[in-house]
C-alpha cells in the first residue's frame, strides 16, 4: 500500500521532469492539491514550488525527489519482506497453514513460477517499448512546457486516471482533494472494513461478484478521467465515484455480515489435492 503510494509519487515526478506541456500543467494541477489543505496549504505550496508558481526550482526539486523516492520504496520493500517472513503471508484459500504438507520452499518453487510470470509480463511490456511507445502518452507532452498556454484538456497518465476522475467529480476543491486522498487511504482500512471471517474470495460467492463490479467501476473511472469533465461524462464520473466509496464503506462491511460463505476446506494441501483429482487447475 505504501509502496503503491510511493510508486505513484515516483511516476508522477518522473513524468514532470520531461517538462513538456502535459508535465508542466499536470504538475500545476497536482501541486495545487496541497493548496487545498487548510491553514498550512499556501506555505506548503511555496515550499514545494520553490517560488510562487511551478517553475525551474520546482523542476529541480522534482529531479531530486524522483531520485529519492526509489530509495524510500527500497526501504519499504525491505519491510515488506520482513512482513513476509515474520507474520507470514496469506494464500489463495485464505486458511492458516497447518503443517509442513501445506507449504513449499520459496526456491525453487516460487522462483521458477515467478520468473516465468515476469518474463511473460516483459513480453507484453516489450510490445509497448518497441512498437507503440506513444500509445499511452499524450501528444501534448511533445510540446515544450509553456506557462502562457494551457492545454485544452489536462489529463494525467493512464495509471492515475481513476483517482483523477474522483478528484474532478466533486465540485469543491478541498472535498475533492479529500475524496481522492480517502480513495487511496481507504485501502489501508480494508482489514477493519471487511467484517467477513473468511479470508479468501474463493469461498465468498457474493463478494466475488462485487469484486468484479468494483473492477469494472475502476475501469469506468479511468475512462472518465481521460475525457473532458462535462455532460454525460461528469454524471457517469460522479456515479462511479459514489460507487467506489459505497464499495468500501457499505458493501464491504455489510457483505461480511449477511453473506453465507461456502464451506472451507480442512487444509491447504487438502484443497489443492482435491482440485488436482478433479482435474481443475490449482
Amino acid at each position: 500500500m505504501v509502496i503503491y503510494l510511493l510508486m505513484m509519487a515516483a511516476a508522477f515526478f518522473g513524468y514532470v521532469i520531461v517538462w513538456g506541456q502535459m508535465s508542466f500543467w499536470g504538475a500545476t494541477v497536482i501541486t495545487n492539491l496541497f493548496g487545498a489543505i487548510p491553514v498550512v496549504g499556501d506555505h506548503l505550496l511555496s515550499l514545494l514550488w520553490g517560488g510562487f508558481s511551478v517553475d525551474n526550482p520546482t523542476l529541480n526539486r522534482f529531479f531530486s525527489l524522483h531520485y529519492l523516492v526509489p530509495f524510500l520504496i527500497f526501504g519499504v520493500v525491505a519491510l515488506h519482506i520482513w512482513a513476509l517472513h515474520v507474520p507470514g503471508n496469506n494464500n489463495p484459500t485464505g486458511i492458516e497453514v497447518k503443517g509442513p504438507q501445506d507449504t513449499v520452499m520459496f526456491h525453487p518453487y516460487y522462483t521458477a513460477k515467478d520468473t516465468f510470470a515476469v518474463v511473460v509480463f516483459m513480453l507484453f511490456f516489450a510490445i509497448f517499448v518497441f512498437y507503440m511507445p506513444n500509445a499511452l502518452g499524450e501528444p501534448d507532452n511533445y510540446i515544450e512546457a509553456n506557462r502562457l498556454i494551457t492545454p485544452p484538456h489536462i489529463v494525467p497518465e493512464w495509471y492515475l486516471l481513476p483517482f483523477y476522475a474522483i478528484l474532478r467529480s466533486i465540485p469543491d476543491k478541498l472535498l475533492g482533494v479529500a475524496a481522492m486522498g480517502v480513495a487511496i487511504f481507504v485501502l489501508f482500512l480494508v482489514p477493519w472494513l471487511d467484517t467477513s471471517k473468511v479470508r479468501s474470495a474463493r469461498f465468498r460467492p457474493l463478494y466475488k461478484q462485487f469484486f468484479w463490479i468494483f473492477l469494472v467501476d475502476a475501469i469506468i473511472l479511468g475512462y472518465i478521467g481521460a475525457k473532458p469533465a462535462e455532460g454525460m461524462y461528469l454524471l457517469v464520473g460522479r456515479l462511479a465515484t459514489a460507487y467506489y466509496f459505497i464499495h468500501f464503506f457499505v458493501i464491504l462491511p455489510v457483505l461480511g455480515l449477511v453473506e453465507t460463505p461456502k464451506p472451507l476446506p480442512e487444509s491447504i494441501s487438502k484443497s489443492v489435492l482435491d482440485n488436482t483429482a478433479t482435474g481443475k487447475p490449482a
Binding site: 518474463v119 513480453l123 516489450a126 518497441f130 512498437y131
Partner: peptide
C-alpha cells in the same frame, strides 16, 4: 524489438 520478442 523483433530480436527481443523472439528472445523473450
Amino acid at each position: 524489438g523483433f530480436k527481443v520478442m523472439i528472445f523473450l
